[in-house]
Amino acid sequence: MKRLVFAALLMLVSLYCLGPFLWQGLTSLKTAADLTRLPPLLPHPPTLEHYRSIFAGHPLLRIIANSFIVATASTVLALSIGSLAAFALAKLPVPGKGAVLLLVLSTSMFPPIATVSPLYLLIRAAGLRDSPVSLILTYTSFTLPLTLWVLTHFFRNIPDELYRAARIDGCTPWQSFTRIMLPLAAPGIFATAILVFIFSWNEFLFALTFTSTTASRTIPVGIALFPGLHEIPWGEIAAASVVVTLPLLFLVFFFQRRIIEGLTAGAVKG
């Protein structure tokens, strides 16, 4: 009985999360004429036309590659810089920790639409326009506050005794950071990494402003550039969102198994 309820709840949650996406998938298989008609619910007959056309006219793969590069670099940067700082804030004697945390947080209190203009000036002055580096730096700085706060919490949660024991055993702060703290905070690091990665993968406003050619264009802007003046090519957008979301999910799934389960299994026991 209990298991039945549990299974039902799982079904409910997946339906809620998956429903609109599945609908998007169905939409991507419908003919243009059926896009705005209900019934029929199911594509009848299903067509792969939209998938053909997103790969035919656009450098979609290039754009996905750009997004992948930008998101990976931002994630690695934000996580490494953020975890260093978080470690210091959680375990090392830093004067005015609260103030630092607050200061860091204050950078994410402005509406992004207000800071896009001045940031553009900076990017241009640095000669980074239309380069993935501009987006990587921007996303890193935007996701740093979250990274820092979440990881500070996770490091703080690790008993001080563990850290002290490591120091007594002769570890430098750096060694105790990489050998003890990082593995123990793995769940937090992993969760944050996913959030940062997806944020960078999906950001639109700054990507639109800082990029102008396929050399640096990322997915959301690429999708917005599917042809048509007032026309919104809905079938193509649906197809594209399926095509760009699946690799992302696969990636998450893969990492989930490989990293998180291995690491936490070891860490929690220890």
Partner: peptide, 16 residues
């Protein structure tokens, strides 16, 4: 693992 991937879907679709 699959379940945890599924719950990420809404977040994974670009906001626009």
């Amino acid at each position: 693992g699959l379940m945890r991937t599924i719950i990420l879907i809404p977040w994974a679709i670009p906001t626009v």
